[in-house]
Design a binder for these strands. Structure first.
Length: 527
RNA sequence: GCCCCUAUCGUCUAGACGGCCUAGGACGCCAGGUUCUCAUCCUGGUAACACCGGUUCGAAUCCGGUUGGGGGUACCA
């Protein structure tokens, strides 16, 4: 088997969201897990909406996520001539025709071939017999067959399908007389010289044909050809449409596996004909389940939700987001979910991707982020925390002291924005959490104990962790309290908060002078 | 309307051959523990096979139907 060549093909029409980047991740993992190549193609043919800023943002996001691509990015807009040339050759080979639909000029349409003998992905299935609505005519021309079924209430329900979907079509009237046999005149219809409008038909019979392909994720898929319509490949204004451009580029880039979102499944039934008409070999297809938002709808650029850049701005670790996203629609098959990138590369396989949509769980992502932060080498953690603190009022103190605080809090940090909560180490005047004050400080006897503690602290020879611990123990023993009962009141007095790092370490780091001042302020709060 | 896909705890998921599933793991939540607290850590608990039929000695697992969800049905990508 040839090496795997995959591509990520976003259109730069806005910020890239979580669904897009997950597609990129799976492509990247598929390639990296088997030594294949991961290419980037920027589908910028929608010139009105494609902006250079969006392209730069795309590069930024990919770099941040560590999604390295091979070779130079391909810009689809630069391939326009190739697309048009392909359309021209399709026209010359009889695989396409020009037709004026509506009031526009002539567009170029791909013709699903009447003769499917050489196409392994089209098979004849059952013979179909349909009751028609007699009031509506059946129209047969080179664009296809249009007819009307009856709804339950007896109203006409218009249908339309490509000519090739109606092999052996026969139309009958109520008396059972054959009104039209398609196969006899298909030649003229195909070249556009003959068209029929048949009135009074109540019954149609034809041989159904199905288009089939095997998806690496979803398995064997099929769709009746009579439910499909001929596909415009070049608009009447002369611009190639997405389907043509996409397939031409994938052929030109020699893509072996097309890995994309579930929303492209239906397109694939049409794309296989394009590959065949262009004389190209079919790639393998893998359609990934959509990632849906809290409302159960797929993320879209229009909703402006869940941009990857937002996660970056909020201080998420790219590796944590990467790891988390990998678990949406895929699982390694064992119980370990926390998998650094090399493990992910080793474990990833397309055949373990599932096919139903997944919803983001931001809490689980946060948990992953906390684990990745805890596992960061300390120097890296401290640098990033320092950078994250730059926007705080208290930023810019001594780096050595900051590092000591960071060391104390690394394992408890879920997100770098949490450093805002480190303020008690860096500011003079505390902001008290009212709830914490009420619960821990404003209780009978607390003020007395804090006074006793202040005295004990003052008498301490060395204001270190061991000394602080024994001083606290001394006070609780004298008050006949349970060990640790005084810790939360002390914490609230020293930090204004009910949560934080170990209290002895916190006190030691704050230093005797500040601790004493805060105890006094705390006593005032305790009233 | 028509076509395609899909359905296990609140969420992400495990569950190749039907019995090892009185359905496992993770997040969340709850409780307890770490002879000092907490957002760390440890232990325990909570909670699911959409519904109805069928096949079978036996079904979350196979088949059919219903319902729900998603996608498509464009001279959008």
């Amino acid at each position: 088997m040839l090496a795997m060549r995959v591509r990520f093909a976003p259109s730069p029409t806005g910020n890239i969201h979580i669904g897009n980047i997950r597609t990129a991740i799976f492509n990247w993992l598929a390639a990296r897990s088997c030594g294949g190549e991961f290419l980037l193609r920027i589908e910028d043919t929608d010139r009105e909406r494609s902006t250079d800023e969006a392209v730069q943002a795309l590069f930024g996001v990919m770099e941040w996520m560590g999604l390295t691509f091979d070779g130079e990015p391909v810009y689809q807009s630069a391939q326009r001539e190739a697309h048009l040339t392909a359309a021209e050759s399709l026209l010359e080979g009889g695989h396409a025709y020009r037709f004026a639909k509506g009031d526009g000029g002539e567009a170029t349409l791909l013709r699903f071939p009447w003769n499917t003998a050489g196409l392994p992905f089209v098979v004849d299935t059952e013979s179909v017999e349909l009751e028609l609505h007699a009031d509506e005519p059946v129209c047969v021309d080179q664009t296809g067959v249009s007819y009307s079924l009856r709804t339950r209430k007896g109203k006409p329900a218009p249908q339309q399908g490509t000519l090739a979907g109606f092999k052996g079509l026969q139309l009958y009237n109520a008396a059972g007389t054959l009104l039209l046999g398609l196969d006899d005149e298909v030649g003229g219809i195909l070249d556009g010289t003959v068209a029929h409008e048949v009135a009074g038909a109540v019954r149609m019979v034809f041989q159904r044909r199905e288009v089939q392909f095997t998806d690496l994720v979803k398995g064997h898929l099929s769709k009746p050809l009579d439910s499909m319509r001929d596909q415009v490949i070049v608009r009447s204004d002369g611009n190639p449409v997405f389907h043509l451009a996409n397939v031409c580029d994938d052929i030109a880039m020699e893509i072996s596996h097309v890995i994309r979102g579930d929303d492209h499944v239906e397109n694939t039934f049409r794309h296989v004909f394009l590959y065949a008409s262009l004389g190209a070999k079919l790639p393998q297809f893998a359609h990934l389940p959509m990632i849906v938002n809290q409302q159960g709808r797929p993320y879209s650029k229009r909703d402006g939700d869940a941009y990857v850049g937002d996660f970056r701005a909020k201080g998420y670790q790219p590796d944590a987001l990467f790891n988390y996203l990998t678990l949406l629609g895929w699982s390694p098959g064992h119980d370990v979910e926390y998998m650094p990138r090399p493990e992910l590369i080793a474990a990833f396989a397309l055949d373990r991707v599932i096919s139903s949509p997944a919803q983001m769980d931001f809490r689980k992502l946060l948990d992953f982020n906390g684990r990745y932060l805890a596992d960061l080498p300390f120097a890296e953690f401290a640098n990033a925390a320092w950078a994250a603190a730059a926007d705080e009022d208290w930023a810019g103190g001594e780096r050595e002291f900051f590092d000591q605080v960071a060391l104390l809090l690394q394992t408890r940090t879920k997100l770098f924005t949490d450093v805002a909560g480190w303020a008690p180490f860096f500011v003079e005047t505390l902001t008290y959490d009212e709830k914490a004050v009420r619960k821990h400080l404003a209780k009978d006897g607390v003020a007395d104990r804090l006074r006793a503690l202040a005295a004990a602290f003052s008498g301490l020879e060395a204001f270190d962790v061991a000394g602080i611990e024994s001083a606290i123990h001394g006070v609780t023993e004298a008050a006949e309290m349970k060990q640790g009962k005084l810790n939360q009141p002390i914490r609230v007095a020293l930090t204004g908060q009910s949560v934080g790092a170990g209290i002895y370490e916190t006190a030691a780091l704050l230093g005797r002078e500040r601790v004493l001042a805060r105890l006094e302020a705390g006593i005032a709060q305790a009233g």
